[in-house]
Amino acid sequence: MRKCSIDNINDVLKALSEKIPLYLPVDRLDGKATYQKYQEGKVWSNALNTERSAKDFFFPQMENLVEFKTQGKNVEVIDIRDEKQDFIIFGVRACDVKSFEILDRVFLSQPVDTFYKSRREHGIIFSLACSKPNETCFCSVFNIDATAPAGDVTLWKTETEVFFKANTEKGEKILSEIDSLTTECGEETVNEQREKTKKILSKLPLSDLDLTNFGVGKTKALFDSPLWKEMSSTCLGCGTCTFVCPTCQCYDIKEFKVGDKVTRFRCWDSCMYSDFTKMAHGNPRLTQAERFRQRFMHKLVYYPDNNDGLFSCVGCGRCLSKCPISMNIVKVIKRVGGKENE
């Protein structure tokens, strides 16, 4: 393990970003943190997490796939792929790091999504351990250790120091390149912080969420619950929950035409939308209750069914703080999975 003084973190960021473009959480004018590209003057945010999740780096909201140019009867296909450059994401929390594993299972299984794969291969992840979790956090419910996130390098931040630990070859290589800015150290301070944080985590208000009624094989028991209709009755169908969610992975492919040029792009889609998965015969989910059910059943039952029991929620709490009507996965877990539904 290596460390540097917090006063020198800018030197580290500068040194890293001179080699590879680096993105880190920076406070926006309204005080909310978002990932921004490092350049002199950008200050690493102290916020617990970013407004939008880190999935944007591998699965951006909008990406152009290919272009066509038409001339008479000829169609020229233009390769515009640009996801071939290495980049560093600095300060990713444990929940978001876990979300990459969930996305990998979708995009890297056959047929492999080569856009996603290429970005994943070029991304270097510096994760950051939590020490002040929020009341909306419930990562521990999904067995995520917020005090020791995975990633190529793990970071711990205290009031005075930043600690670095490499977990992969990629991580070791990049840390060795900034050797002169860090010093070798023991793990005592980090372990102390971890113990303290673990105590806080165990006492968080949502740490006792009970998932026993969800997971593999629970479709039949939950699908027809009357609560879907009741709980979705004021859902706006806005899809905010799906857009801020680090594990939501649905997209649509569309074309944008200007003159003789056609750009084929993909953009995020949302199961909460009325035209989601619209087919020739129409939309398979006619009511908001069915769409609402889809979102939560996918996270808590269908995905686990197809992925060895792994839930596709990481407890980041974004949908809790962002839903305009304050409806969210925790309320669903408590009511649909609770006594009311037995």
Binding site: R52, Q61, L236, G237, C238, G239, T240, F243, V244, S270, Y273, S274, D275, K278, P324
Partner: peptide, 24 residues
């Protein structure tokens, strides 16, 4: 803007049955 459309979905003045922005 995320284009979540929450602003439109909550707006009491936006009550078109099918918003042009949702209509393929």
């Amino acid at each position: 803007c995320l284009r979540c459309n929450a602003c439109r979905d909550v707006c009491p003045a936006c009550t078109c049955e099918k918003c042009v922005f949702d209509n393929p």
